[in-house]
């Protein structure tokens, strides 16, 4: 009864917020947060005769100190960083350039180009891997014949099989497939640049080239940042599919295309004669999680906050 005598100006609890949040929270907890916590927990254990015992950070120490693990870990990490840099320096500039071209209002058939450029993104990774393996095959591929036709046949190499070129080749295939995603993000951002601003710039005497650099680009900077961070995350997580389907779990030749994903796969599940080790696998997975976490944190606190959003 005491309740009724309290002042009534307090807002009632808005239960519907909880109701709306519940499904997403529940699903996210079960399928994302719980597995991450569980693999963090597993990474602190080691298998022995009596199942597993708690070993603290011993697995992490092994991962960066024991030559067998450290060599693979740093190699995979290095390849991931290279993959990221190549995507940033090749994929995203291409996507930006194409988006800039597509957003030119006088361009005819923009919808057709847009569709064609986005099409590979819709293909299954396995299909893409298989097609490119065939195209580049020294035995059955069209590339050697095509290069002969152009008179540059002597430059043909089995690129996917050479240590020096395998990673670059896989990266280019990945770029071919995924250039559509940053393209669409840039394109959408460019379309949002208000017409009046561009008009004003034109009256001030800027041509198309300078309008792009001085007006449009600063306005879509937040999208650049977003694409950058998506590229970063994608390189550590999505790179596995393509490399596994093209080069297999051993990420050959001589681990030159090994990334964190394939390294994790081999460690966790084992590969042929090598048996899987759930605990070391969880350690690799957790290391991967921290790498992504650090990258995203640096972006959020270092870059995102400084980005200014221009409102029209």
């Amino acid at each position: 009864m005491a309740n009724t005598e309290r002042p009534t100006h307090r807002r009632p609890i808005r239960w519907y917020i909880l109701v709306f949040l519940a499904p997403a929270t529940l699903i996210y907890t079960i399928f994302a947060i719980y597995p991450i916590l569980e693999s963090l927990r597993l990474s602190l254990f080691q298998a022995n005769e009596n199942g597993a015992t708690f070993e603290g950070l011993a697995n992490y120490a092994r991962l960066i100190q024991e030559p067998y693990w450290a060599e693979q870990f740093w190699n995979a990490f290095k390849n991931n960083v290279l993959l990221f840099l190549m995507h940033m320096l090749i994929q995203n500039p291409i996507a930006l350039a194409l988006a800039a071209l597509l957003s030119v209002p006088t361009l005819k058939g923009a919808a057709v180009y847009r569709t064609i450029l986005f099409l590979p993104t819709l293909l299954s990774v396995v299909v893409v891997g298989f097609i490119w393996q065939l195209i580049l095959s020294p035995l059955w591929g069209v590339t050697p014949a095509f290069m002969n036709f152009l008179g540059v046949g002597s430059f043909f190499k089995p690129w996917l099989g050479l240590e020096s070129s395998a990673l670059v080749t896989v990266t280019l295939i990945s770029i071919w497939q995924y250039v559509g995603i940053p393209l669409m993000l840039f394109y959408a951002a460019l379309l949002n640049v208000p017409e009046e601003t561009i008009e004003a710039a034109r009256i001030d005497g800027l041509n198309g080239w300078w309008i792009f650099w001085k007006v449009k680009l600063p306005l879509i900077l937040p999208s650049l940042g977003l694409v950058g961070i998506l590229t970063y995350i994608g390189n550590f997580t999505a790179s596995f599919d393509l490399i596994y389907s093209i080069q297999g779990g051993l990420a050959g030749p001589d681990y030159s295309t090994d990334v964190m994903g394939t390294f994790l796969f081999r460690t966790f599940f084992g590969f042929q004669a090598q048996l899987g080790d759930v605990y070391m696998g969880a350690t690799v997975a957790s290391a991967l999680f921290f790498i992504i976490l650090i990258g995203v944190a640096l972006y959020l606190f270092g870059v995102q906050r400084r980005l200014q959003r221009y409102e029209s």
Partner: peptide
Amino acid sequence: AHQILSRGEPALGNQLWTLTANVINGS
């Protein structure tokens, strides 16, 4: 490499794959 020699990390069986491929590739 199948008996006993493939019990540890790395398993010799798997090692031989990469090493032999490297030798043939000349690396």
